[in-house]
C-alpha cells in the first residue's frame, strides 16, 4: 500500500507497527491501550454494521442494488454453511457470518493506502481460529457427549494400529487452529510486504535520472498487478477462513468419519 508516500522511509515492515492512541495505564504489568489496531477493528465493525443496516433499511420485496449486495452476502455464507455442515449447521450462521464479514472487511480496508491491516497480525487471526476451535470442541462434547471422540477413531482400523492412528488424528485435529490462523496472517503479511517492496523499487530507481525513470516502469506495472492480486487474495482468504470454519463445525455436528 501507499506507493508514492514512502519516499522518506521505505521500510516494508513499518506498516505493521502498532502504536498506542490512548493509554489507560497498566494492569499486572501489561499496558492497556487503545492502539491503531483496535481503532481499525472498531472501524471495520462500524462499517459492517453501517453497511448491513443502511442497505437493508429499505426492506424492499424487490431489493434495490445496495440491498441485494447485503442479500448476496447473506446467501453466500448461508449456502456455504448449508453445503458443508448441513441445515443443522445454520444455527452457527451468525457466528460464521460475523467471522466472514470481519475478515473480509478487515482485508479490504487494509488495501487502502496508509490504513492498518488488522488481519496481518497473527495474534488476531489466532484468536479467531481459537474461537472456532473451542466452539467446535465445546459444542461437540455438549451435543455428542463422549461420542465426539469418535472423530479420532476411524472405523475399520485393526486394534494394533489404533493407538498410532488415534495419535495422528489428534495431532491433525490440534493443527487446525495453527493452519487456519497462519494461512490468513501469512497471506496478508506477505502480500502487503511484497506490495511495499515493489513500490519501494519505483522510488529508489527513479533517483537514478532518466534511465531509472524508464526502469521504474516495470516495478510500477508490477505494483498495479499485485494490487489487483491482493484484492483477490483479500476476498479469497476470507472465503477460505469461513469455509474451513464450516467444515470444522460439521465435525462438531456429525463427529463420525
Amino acid at each position: 500500500m501507499a506507493e508514492a508516500a514512502q519516499a522518506d522511509s521505505v521500510d516494508p515492515i513499518h506498516q505493521f507497527a502498532i502504536n498506542d492512541i490512548v493509554t489507560f495505564g497498566e494492569i499486572g504489568g501489561v499496558k492497556i491501550a487503545f492502539t491503531n489496531s483496535a481503532l481499525f477493528m472498531v472501524i471495520v465493525v462500524a462499517l459492517i454494521a453501517a453497511f448491513l443496516l443502511l442497505t437493508t433499511s429499505g426492506r424492499g420485496l424487490v431489493p434495490s442494488r445496495l440491498q441485494s449486495m447485503a442479500e448476496i452476502s447473506y446467501e453466500f455464507v448461508a449456502n456455504m454453511l448449508r453445503e458443508s455442515a448441513g441445515t443443522e449447521g445454520m444455527r452457527f450462521f451468525p457466528f460464521v457470518f460475523s467471522l466472514f464479514m470481519f475478515v473480509l472487511f478487515a482485508n479490504l480496508i487494509g488495501m487502502v493506502p496508509y490504513f492498518f491491516t488488522v488481519t496481518s497480525h497473527i495474534i488476531i487471526t489466532f484468536a479467531m481460529a481459537m474461537t472456532v476451535f473451542l466452539t467446535v470442541i465445546i459444542y461437540g462434547f455438549w451435543r455428542n457427549g463422549l461420542g465426539f471422540l469418535k472423530l479420532f477413531v476411524p472405523q475399520g482400523v485393526p486394534g494394533v494400529l489404533l493407538p498410532l492412528i488415534v495419535a495422528i488424528e489428534v495431532l491433525s485435529f490440534l493443527s487446525r487452529p495453527i493452519s487456519l490462523s497462519v494461512r490468513l496472517f501469512a497471506n496478508m503479511l506477505a502480500g502487503h510486504i511484497t506490495l511495499k517492496v515493489f513500490a519501494g523499487f519505483v522510488i529508489s530507481l527513479s533517483a537514478f535520472g532518466a534511465a531509472g525513470f524508464l526502469g521504474a516502469v516495470i516495478p510500477l506495472a508490477l505494483t498495479v498487478a499485485l494490487t489487483a492480486l491482493e484484492f483477490l487474495v483479500a476476498f479469497l482468504q476470507a472465503y477460505v477462513f469461513a469455509i474451513l470454519t464450516c467444515m470444522y463445525l460439521n465435525d462438531a455436528i456429525h463427529p463420525s468419519h
Binding site: 495431532l171 491433525s172 490440534l174 493443527s175 487446525r176 495453527i178 493452519s179 497462519v182 494461512r183 501469512a186
Partner: peptide, 9 residues
Amino acid sequence: SEFVAAIVV
C-alpha cells in the same frame, strides 16, 4: 499450510 501446521504442532 495444512501440511506445515501439523508438522509444527
